[in-house]
Computed example of a mutant assay.
Amino acid sequence: MGKSILKEKSYAFVILVVKLSQSLVTEKKEYVLRKQLLRIGTAIGAVIRETEFALSKADFIHKMSISLKEVNEPLYWLDLRKDTDYVPEEAHLIHFNLNKELVSMSVSAIKTTKSRN
């Protein structure tokens, strides 16, 4: 696969999620939201990494479709975190915008692969 912007950005997102989960515990003593964010946030990078070793075009599309589902879920948890006043708007936007970018990139990867013969 070589250098993959999607892989790099998903890893950067996972790093942000891990740091966020640490701050939720140390600063807010919040464990349920932390667990959900950490579970889904770390899954994103793992599933995207899996696509590197897809056995075929169909397998790649399948794995990317799974990653798209995984990438979309944190948007809910990030909004919940903001709307319950766990983080200020500026901090929320950093995570949220990177997450939205991952969704767009995943959709693009699937569409591009489907269009290739």
Rank of each mutant, 00 (worst) to 15 (best):
L93P: 00
I15N: 13
K9D: 10
Q36E: 02
V71C: 09
I40Q: 11
N99Q: 12
V47A: 11
V103W: 01
H95L: 14
L75E: 14
L80Y: 13
W77A: 06
E52P: 08
Y31C: 01
R81P: 00
V25G: 00
P88G: 04
L20P: 07
E90T: 10
E90W: 02
F60K: 12
T26E: 15
V32L: 13
I5G: 07
N97A: 07
M64T: 01
L24E: 11
S104R: 10
Y86V: 03
I48W: 03
S65W: 01
Q22L: 09
T42K: 14
V103M: 07
E70Y: 04
Y76F: 14
V103S: 06
F60A: 08
S65L: 01
G45N: 13
K9P: 04
R49A: 15
E8V: 08
Q36W: 01
T51G: 13
I40E: 10
L98M: 11
D83A: 03
K82P: 05
I40M: 07
G41Q: 10
N72T: 03
F53C: 06
V18A: 12
H92V: 02
L55K: 15
L68C: 05
Q36I: 00
L38V: 02
K82A: 09
L37E: 04
Y86M: 09
S67E: 02
A54L: 04
E70L: 00
I15F: 05
H92G: 04
K28N: 05
V32E: 08
R81C: 06
I44A: 12
L37S: 03
L75V: 04
F53K: 15
E89K: 12
E8G: 08
D59R: 06
V103I: 13
V18F: 09
L68A: 01
Y76L: 10
K69S: 02
L75T: 11
E50G: 12
A46I: 11
L98Y: 03
